[in-house]
């Protein structure tokens, strides 16, 4: 038990001292995950809305596949991206393997299906309510899509947050394609895994605290913003 207290105390020491190594890891983690979320949102929102609104052959199948992809194991995504980006792979020429770029690609692939699948659900529910009115006003499918994404913005914030949560918490994919290289591709989750196995519990715990605080902070902020905006907008 004493060891844990000691580790916790050391962890807070690192955080309060603004330890440069720790800071570097936190900044890189945020950069990778936020970029991945931004890209996945740009792909997932229109894709999910399109599957909800447009009638085309294979639409049902696509919805089912998306739902299944929500449960993609991060290590499998990591492996696939690794194969694609390795020297012998189709995208090897870009030299992305073991760079933050590769980690962004992997996280993006991991969470784009989540954002798309949840968006489809949100937009489909809204469409049930809006369809007659929008068609009556003369809105075509493209216009309807933009309108529903806008009117569903409060629910979609939660959707994007789910993606961010998944991206910032996963360790398998970034470990494989990033390699956990110090000062280069080491992020919070890979560092925690490494430091724990080395027995360096203070740094691992410190990172763990920061990771949790960030996740809680982002979610709380989003909740408050959503709540206030929703009360104003009705």
């Amino acid at each position: 038990m004493d060891e844990i207290y000691a580790a916790a105390a050391a962890a807070f020491g690192l955080i309060l001292d603004l330890d440069p190594d720790l800071g570097e890891i936190v900044v890189l983690s945020l950069r990778v995950s936020l970029t991945a979320v931004a890209l996945a949102t740009a792909i997932g929102l229109p894709l999910g809305a399109a599957i909800a609104l447009f009638r085309f052959p294979g639409r049902r199948t696509m919805a089912v596949v998306l739902n299944a992809l929500m449960g993609l194991p991060p290590v499998v995504v990591g492996l696939i991206v690794y194969l694609m980006l390795s020297r012998a792979g189709p995208f090897g020429v870009f030299g992305l393997l073991y760079t933050p770029g590769a980690m962004i690609v992997a996280q993006c692939l991991l969470i784009a299906p989540i954002i798309a699948a949840l968006t489809r659900q949100v937009v489909e529910d809204l469409w049930a309510e809006y369809e007659e009115q929008l068609r009556s006003l003369g809105a075509g499918p493209g216009r309807a899509m933009a309108t529903l994404l806008r009117d569903g913005r409060f629910s979609l914030v939660t959707v994007v947050l789910a993606g961010f949560g998944r991206a910032s918490a996963e360790v398998g994919a970034v470990m494989i394609v990033g390699g956990n290289i110090d000062h280069l591709t080491r992020v919070m989750t890979t560092a925690i895994a490494l430091e724990t196995s080395k027995g360096n519990l203070a740094l691992a715990l410190g990172l763990g605290f920061i990771l949790m605080t960030l996740a809680l902070g982002v979610n709380a902020a989003a909740f408050v913003i959503k709540d206030v905006a929703q009360r104003r907008q009705g």
């Binding site: 809006y130 007659e132 009115q133 929008l134 006003l137 003369g138 309108t147 806008r150 009117d151």
Partner: peptide
């Protein structure tokens, strides 16, 4: 484009009253 319908339960977009009217004009 030349006919409109008012429903028993109108669906209002999540924006201001004026913006709801402007939306109908913009779509048309």
């Amino acid at each position: 484009r030349r006919q409109a319908m008012v429903f028993q339960r109108p669906v209002m977009l999540r924006r201001s009253a004026a913006a709801n009217v402007a939306y109908a004009l913009s779509v048309n």
